[in-house]
Structures are given as structure tokens and as C-alpha cells.
């Protein structure tokens, strides 16, 4: 759910940059540490970032008739955790602006906050909770991706609402308007993205389970027996 280039008033655009930069900086520190420890992870992270971009450039099967694009950040959060995902999302959002004209440079901060921080954090927490609850890999991935998407969409609505409060009802009335409009496309989109993400993880677990074990998405049988 990108906010279009230049749509936010400058002060709000700045505000969301200030909110996002510390998290991305923290992600960069984590990334630096990870790359120093295991240099081979860098190219894998790059693949994950490119994958999120390519996914977002593909069209999801339409459910309501409107064509929509998946965000792909749920998968990143499940694989790498929210801190590093925020860095990947920053790069991906920059490319989405420059290659596809989705989002923009002035709204980059706001978009990083909704799609690169809030969405992944929710997806990550939901995934961890589902793993604890032992509801199986596919449902866990579905819930993580779908709820992450919804969190993103609510965040975007809040961002627009605080920037454009209505004269009579204020921020809350404005939030209701934006949220209702977005719900038409975002609620089905989140379900579709959840299904696709779950199917992708399922496919990877069938053909290359070692990749998921390496990322600690699923606990490998070997690792348990040796440790």
C-alpha cells in the first residue's frame, strides 16, 4: 500500500523519515554483524530483496476484479526477522519508486514505516506465536503474511488520516474514510498474499527443505538430534 509521491504534506513526510531511520539504522548494524560473521549471507539477502521486488511487480490473481500487487515483506520477516527486513524493504521501496513509479522519494519514509517496519514486525510476531501454538507451517505462514498486510494497511490509513484530518470529525473521521476505501482492495489482497506466501513456503519445504532450515524457519531434524 504505497503512498503516492508528494501526497503527504512536507512536515509529515519528514516525520515518518525521522520515525523510520533509527529502525533501518539498527537493521543495518544487525546486517553488518551478520555479514561479518557469515559473508555468504549477503548474496542470499540480496536474492531475498530482489525476490520481494519481483513478487511485487507480478500481479496477484484478482479476487475482487481489481488487480493488486503483493508486498512480499511477510516472507522476508519470516526468513530474516524484522530488523534486517526493514533494510531490505528500504532498498526494494527505492527500486519500486524508480523502476515502477510505485510510491516515491518524499514518501519513502512513510512507506518504509508501514511496509518495512510495522508489517514485518506484526508478521514476525504472529509467525513466532503460531509456531509456539504448533498450528503447522502453512497456516502459520498464511496468518503471518495476511495479518502483516493488514497491519500495513491500517498504518497507511493512520498516516493519511493524521496528515489530512477532516474539519469536523478530525483525525478519526478521516481514518474511517481512508480505511473504508482501502478495505475494498486490501482485505482480499491480504488473503491472496497470505495464500500465495503459504504456497511458496510449502513448495520450498518440499523441494529444498535445507534452505528453510538454514534460515531457521523450521527446525531441522538433524540439528535437533546433534545438539
Amino acid at each position: 500500500m504505497h503512498i503516492m509521491e508528494g501526497f503527504l504534506p512536507p512536515m509529515w513526510a519528514l516525520f515518518w523519515f525521522v520515525m523510520s531511520i533509527p529502525v533501518v539504522a539498527y537493521g543495518l548494524v544487525q546486517l553488518n554483524k551478520l555479514v561479518k560473521e557469515k559473508p555468504e549471507t549477503k548474496s542470499l539477502l540480496a536474492v531475498a530483496g530482489a525476490f520481494a521486488f519481483v513478487l511485487s511487480a507480478l500481479k496477484l490473481p484478482s479476487v475482487t476484479g481489481s488487480c493488486s500487487h503483493p508486498t512480499g515483506t511477510g516472507l522476508g520477516a519470516i526468513c530474516f526477522g524484522p530488523a534486517i527486513t526493514s533494510v531490505l524493504a528500504t532498498v526494494v521501496l527505492l527500486y519500486q519508486a524508480l523502476f515502477l513509479a510505485h510510491g516515491g522519494l518524499t514518501t519513502l519514509g512513510a512507506n518504509i514505516f508501514s511496509m518495512g517496519i510495522v508489517g514485518p514486525v506484526v508478521a514476525y510476531v504472529v509467525f513466532k506465536a503460531c509456531k509456539k501454538a504448533n498450528i503447522g507451517l502453512m497456516p502459520a505462514v498464511f496468518l503471518a503474511a495476511a495479518l502483516g498486510d493488514w497491519a500495513t494497511y491500517v498504518t497507511t490509513s493512520v498516516q493519511l488520516a493524521v496528515a489530512f484530518p477532516t474539519a469536523l470529525g478530525g483525525t478519526f473521521a478521516s481514518f474511517k474514510i481512508f480505511a473504508t476505501i482501502f478495505a475494498v482492495t486490501q482485505v482480499p489482497l491480504a488473503i491472496a498474499e497470505g495464500i500465495v506466501t503459504a504456497l511458496i513456503v510449502n513448495y520450498i519445504s518440499q523441494v529444498r527443505v535445507d534452505v528453510l532450515e538454514q534460515l531457521k524457519v523450521i527446525v531441522s531434524s538433524k540439528a535437533v538430534s546433534t545438539s
Partner: peptide, 9 residues
């Protein structure tokens, strides 16, 4: 990382 992602894209 950006350069690598660009290449992979």
C-alpha cells in the same frame, strides 16, 4: 546490497 539486489532483479 543495493547493487546486488539491482543485479538480481
Amino acid at each position: 546490497l543495493s547493487m546486488l539486489i539491482y543485479r538480481f532483479i
